[in-house]
């Protein structure tokens, strides 16, 4: 077997080695992640491998199988043109299945005044797009996919990977972010049209800075703007569903999550546009202690 090309990336507290049978996905990754530091000691937490599904599929209708330390046997291979997506999915997968140092919440997060706003919800809730938009409006972007809850301090750590924009969010972000921050447009992926966006510079420069969680929102796109109170029991259950490693962390996860639910004000938020969401968020933010 031919040697694979590889790069190393440090993203927040996690370090990755991405190895690929093809150069193209790594060249795209290197370009988009050029401002990110390499892991200082060269030691990585996870390896992601992009390999041909079968040896001949390296050249003929090349198709990328995602491998690595952790992998799902039934993950469908992607065409080579979507190799960048495969690498990003591979990194997500390693975090979701393997990370144990923090409680991992499937949520986006942004920071202001040292305090973190965390947004979680189902796919399509708009949490990713909202975090990307707020990052262009004075907030520090911390992550659009995973918020890492520190088991000891209760703080949120950034995991500011590339922002994964889907469908209409691509056009919306094109209007506010410089063209050189965008990756290639990938049409018709299993997740729809996808285009990656490099987070604003402060997100990368300050990716080791945690923030105290100050507000948790469950956004829901496409409904009349409204804020709704939620009971602690509902919040707790939905956060366990949003965490990929709550069960694996045992008692430490229980303590971290119950403390989070006790301390962090929470609302369900319906909205139809970013401007509406921003207005609702600012009104809540200004009332925080």
């Amino acid at each position: 077997m031919r040697e694979m090309n590889q790069i190393r990336l440090g993203i927040g507290p996690a370090a990755f080695r991405i190895a690929s049978a093809w150069r193209q996905p790594l060249e795209q990754l290197s370009g988009l992640y050029q401002d990110y530091p390499a892991p200082t000691d060269g030691i990585v937490d996870f390896t992601v491998r992009l390999e041909p599904e079968k040896p001949w599929r390296r050249y003929i209708r090349p198709s990328v199988h995602i491998g690595g330390d952790f992998w799902l046997p039934d993950a469908a291979p992607l065409p080579l043109a979507q190799g960048l997506l495969a690498a990003e999915m591979g990194m997500n997968l390693q975090m979701a299945l393997g990370w144990r140092r923090h409680l991992l919440l499937h949520a986006s997060s942004v920071e202001k005044d040292g305090k973190a706003l965390i947004m979680t919800g189902l796919s399509g809730s708009g949490k990713s797009t909202l975090s990307a938009m707020l990052a262009e409006r004075g907030w520090r972007f911390m992550g659009d996919e995973f918020a890492l809850l520190d088991l000891d301090t209760g703080n949120i750590l950034p995991f500011p990977r590339l922002i994964s924009l889907k469908n209409q969010a691509i056009g919306a972000m094109r209007q506010v972010a410089a063209a050189d921050r965008f990756g290639p447009e990938m049409k018709g992926t299993p997740k729809g049209d996808i285009r990656h966006l490099v987070p604003p510079k402060p997100a990368i420069e300050r990716m080791d800075e945690s923030a105290s969680p100050a507000l948790l929102l469950f956004p829901r796109f496409g409904h009349e703007p409204a804020l709704r109170a939620m009971g602690q029991s509902e919040i707790f259950v939905r956060l366990t569903q949003a965490s990929t490693n709550y069960v694996a962390l045992g008692k430490a996860g229980f303590h971290a999550l119950t403390r989070f639910v006790d301390r962090v004000p929470t609302k369900a938020m319906d909205y139809q546009s970013t401007d509406q969401a921003e207005e609702l968020i600012e009104s809540l933010w200004n009332q925080l202690p």
Partner: peptide
């Protein structure tokens, strides 16, 4: 057992099984 009261329910973490009961 580790207890934690929420607004309308009580959480109970069972150490031997690692299961959280509501």
């Amino acid at each position: 057992l580790i207890w934690h009261a929420l607004d309308s329910m009580t959480l109970l973490f069972h150490r031997p099984s690692g299961i959280t009961h509501m």
